[in-house]
Amino acid sequence: MLALATIQKHQSGYSAQFTCPLSHAISEVWAVLTDNGKLQKWMSNLEMVDLKKNGNMRFNMNDGTDAFIEMAITDYMEQEVLEFEWGKDSVRFMLSPTSDGSILSLRETIGQLSDHTPKDLAGWHICLEQLSDLLNGIVHKEFPMEAWQNRVAEYTLLVDEAEK
């Protein structure tokens, strides 16, 4: 079970940090992060287009309209770092080896907290759990809305606390 993210206040805004210990090699985790066939099994909206620094990816609306948002890849180091625009904010995945696998860290840099922030963080939480499941051979057919709603409640409390 993935622990809740930690939220910190900074001069320029906030950051939310998820830490996900995995019993899988970095190469396996990297493939799940960057290979569209695997990526879309845990985050169906994301699509890699030009996987490199200053490349781009898409957030597909998946609403039947073929609409998408283009997002710039702002930092990239093969099997170490993938950072991209996330609206006005950014999301950074970092991988580091451990003696029995790897640690996947996700840091979302948030300029301004909003009513949507807990929903966004809850979404990342559920997606990271699905990423971990995928590495363990479990594929979820649908996004677990009830689990997401429970996480929204938890992240609402964390965001409220961070604002104080």
Rank of each mutant, 00 (worst) to 15 (best):
H10F: 13
H10Q: 11
Q11D: 15
S12A: 10
Y14M: 07
S15L: 06
A16E: 01
A16K: 01
Q17P: 00
F18L: 06
F18Q: 04
L22V: 03
L22Y: 03
L22W: 02
H24I: 01
A25N: 10
I26D: 00
I26R: 06
E28N: 11
E28C: 05
W30G: 01
A31W: 05
V32C: 09
V32D: 01
D35W: 01
G37S: 08
L39C: 01
L39Q: 01
Q40D: 03
W42A: 00
W42I: 02
W42S: 00
M43I: 08
M43N: 08
N45Q: 07
N45K: 07
N45L: 02
N45D: 09
L46Q: 12
V49I: 11
V49R: 13
V49G: 03
L51R: 11
L51T: 04
K53A: 12
K53I: 12
K53D: 07
M57T: 04
M57V: 05
M57F: 10
R58L: 10
F59V: 06
F59E: 06
N60V: 07
D63R: 07
D63T: 06
G64L: 05
G64H: 06
G64T: 07
A67W: 08
I69S: 09
E70P: 04
E70V: 11
E70W: 11
M71T: 09
A72F: 02
A72E: 14
I73E: 04
I73M: 05
I73F: 03
I73W: 00
Y76N: 02
Y76V: 04
E78I: 05
E78C: 05
Q79P: 03
Q79K: 14
Q79I: 05
E80S: 15
V81M: 10
L82E: 03
E83P: 04
E85I: 06
E85S: 11
E85K: 12
G87A: 10
G87T: 03
K88F: 14
K88P: 13
D89R: 08
F93E: 00
M94I: 03
L95M: 07
L95F: 06
S96F: 10
P97W: 02
T98D: 10
D100R: 15
G101T: 07
G101C: 06
I103T: 10
L106K: 01
I110T: 07
I110R: 02
G111T: 15
G111S: 14
Q112A: 13
L113W: 02
H116Y: 08
T117D: 04
T117V: 10
P118C: 10
K119F: 12
L121H: 10
A122Q: 13
A122N: 12
W124F: 12
H125A: 09
C127W: 03
C127S: 12
L128N: 02
L128E: 02
E129D: 12
Q130N: 15
L131I: 12
L131C: 05
S132R: 11
D133Q: 15
D133I: 01
N136E: 13
N136L: 10
G137E: 14
G137F: 13
I138N: 12
